[in-house]
């Protein structure tokens, strides 16, 4: 029943002409992109073979074509052992540098919020320096560190040494990348963590203190778990960014994903298809990371949202159920009546 008392007044939805036009235009662009991805171009070579035409042996030639993006070559190298080794190194570097970066970030953020001026200044300077110089410069610097510090000692300053380190052998390309990217990431992460800590209401710390929790307990048990909700999204960004930043390792001759395809195309000159191979792998890892991020965010959203966001699987089920219900009511007016 409508407010007027009529049962059968048709509702005419608004026609969104502008939206339809935009959607149409976008579809055309997508179609063009898809076409160029899967189109073939003439190679200029000819396929010639001998055949009997009208009793005489003749050369019959046809123009040869190949995929514009040379998908056959992409397929050939996609799971080659070199590329897979590169991928493995890229993932290893991403995981290790992020572990260093996050741990360092938490420590520097806490130092930055310390009431002691010297401690907080040290933290500020750390962030200032490592954010303020290019990561590529830092990487080359650490790679060459042994040229100014051939060795290092761990012990009592200016007197006894307990452990002697030979930096020439210690700073391999691998360790140089870990140290350079880890320190640089620590600087960025410290700002993210600091922002998260400061986003937590002061009343939470007061409540924790009033129970008798120490400053560190309050931080660990109350503040950081709540700060996670603010920390996770930009950290997800950092992980994805780091995945690609590890390609800088190719400059110090460490073979990760980018360097592995560079090595291959240096030999066979198939530059584009091999870059496509690397790009697809980067996209796959990024996709996995994005899915992971969704679930981590969902975990830390508990308590702050009355109902947690649906997982993609739940949403799909929910949508399907909605469509089914709609179809059912459309088919049977009786059900529609019952619903209203």
């Amino acid at each position: 029943m409508t407010p007027n008392g009529d049962d059968a007044v048709a509702v005419v939805p608004v026609r969104h002409v502008g939206r339809w036009l935009a959607a149409g235009l976008a579809s055309v662009v997508i179609a063009m992109l898809a076409h160029s991805l899967f189109s073939k171009i003439p190679t200029g070579l000819q396929n010639c073979r001998s055949s009997h035409v009208g009793g005489a042996l003749r050369n019959v030639c046809t123009d040869a074509f190949e995929w514009r993006f040379q998908w056959d070559i992409v397929g050939q190298y996609f799971t080659s052992i070199q590329v897979l080794h590169g991928l493995e190194m890229t993932i290893l570097l991403t995981v290790l540098t992020m572990l260093i970066g996050v741990s360092l970030g938490v420590i520097v953020a806490i130092m930055r919020l310390s009431p002691n001026r010297i401690v907080s200044s040290v933290a500020w300077s750390f962030t200032w320096f490592f954010r303020g110089t290019p990561v590529l410069v830092q990487l080359i610097f650490w790679y060459n560190i042994a040229s100014i510090f051939p060795s290092a000692d761990i012990g009592i300053p200016f007197s006894i040494s307990f452990i002697h380190l030979d930096l020439t052998t210690l700073f391999t390309p691998f360790t140089a990348v870990l140290v350079a990217l880890g320190l640089n990431e620590g600087a960025y992460m410290s700002e993210i963590v600091r922002g998260g800590i400061q986003a937590v209401d002061e009343g939470q710390v007061e409540a924790a203190n009033s129970l008798g929790l120490t400053r560190l307990q309050a931080l660990r048990l109350v503040v950081l778990p709540q700060a996670m909700r603010v920390i996770i999204p930009p950290t997800g960004n950092e992980v994805i960014s780091m995945l690609k930043t590890t390609s800088l390792a190719s400059t110090v001759a460490l073979v990760e994903l980018t360097k592995s395809v560079q090595n291959i195309y240096a030999a066979n000159y198939k530059i584009i298809p091999l870059l496509v191979v690397a790009s697809i792998w980067y996209l796959i890892v990024t996709t996995v990371l994005s899915i992971l991020q969704f679930y981590v965010e969902r975990h830390y959203a508990k308590g702050s949202l009355r109902t947690p966001p649906m997982t993609p699987v739940q949403r799909l089920r929910h949508d399907l159920r909605g469509i089914a219900a709609k179809a059912l009511t459309r088919r049977s007016p009786r059900l529609r009546e019952l619903r209203s």
């Binding site: 409540a207 008798g212 109350v222």
Partner: peptide, 23 residues
Amino acid sequence: DKEICAERSEIGMVFQRFNLFSH
């Protein structure tokens, strides 16, 4: 700090804005 925390643990406090741990 440790001694102050021990003192505080014997005094309960209820706040205007509840300050329950939201997580």
